[in-house]
Design a protein around this nucleic acid. Structure first.
Lengths: 98, 98
DNA sequence: ATCTTTGTTCGTAATTTAACGAACAATTAA
DNA sequence: TTAATTGTTCGTTAAATTACGAACAAAGAT
């Protein structure tokens, strides 16, 4: 087994990196990793994109597992997905030899 | 000035992350950051992709500034672009708070 | 001079990404 | 109940990504 050339680690790093591969998403991750949480409405105000586009970026980050959204009607509170964020930190630490 | 919401740092991080956003390219970067250099022929043997596809990935890494190729006819020796790799390390260190 | 090796470029095709506005759903406020 | 707020989904469009094989160019080897 594990006949593969590319390891699971490498695939995970690539998956996380892809999610980080857009300035808007870097912005969101930076914000959420600094402060605890935020509402997407706050983001929508600051960022130069329409809400549907923002929704797509947040979905991409959710799909990658880097953030999570909690319904707090009528808003949604977004937070870092601590467990996976930690994993990403560790993976990149190893990858970049930090 | 600097009226922009997204900083140059965030854009740079995103640019590097995008280049890291594919398992093959993670593989190449990992290899090159460990050992000094390598020939793309060596990569072509190990990796499950045809040479033209590999060429594209190497071009993407070159365009992002993460690697550089030196002609050593008839081969090309690829190395990490030390300066930019260092920059990427620093940017991600800050971004991920490592 | 010809053949081989090495790697890029080109043509093609399928998939994904990114962005917008309009429409929709869900919940809160009036 | 009606109106306003919030965010997702849908339809559309344009561009980028990924992959392959064939053709090509450059340099070395025979």
């Amino acid at each position: 087994m594990d006949n593969e050339v590319l390891t699971k680690k490498q695939k995970k790093i690539a998956r996380y990196a892809k999610a980080m591969g857009h300035p808007i998403r870097v912005y969101v991750l930076e914000l959420l990793s600094k402060q605890s949480c935020c509402y997407s409405g706050d983001l929508s105000e600051e960022l130069p994109i329409v809400k549907s586009t923002l929704s797509g970026h947040l979905k991409e980050l959710k799909d990658a597992g880097l953030i999570q959204g909690e319904i707090e009607a009528p808003k949604i509170r977004y937070c870092i997905h601590k467990e996976n964020w930690k994993e990403a930190q560790d993976l990149f630490k190893g990858f970049l030899k930090l």
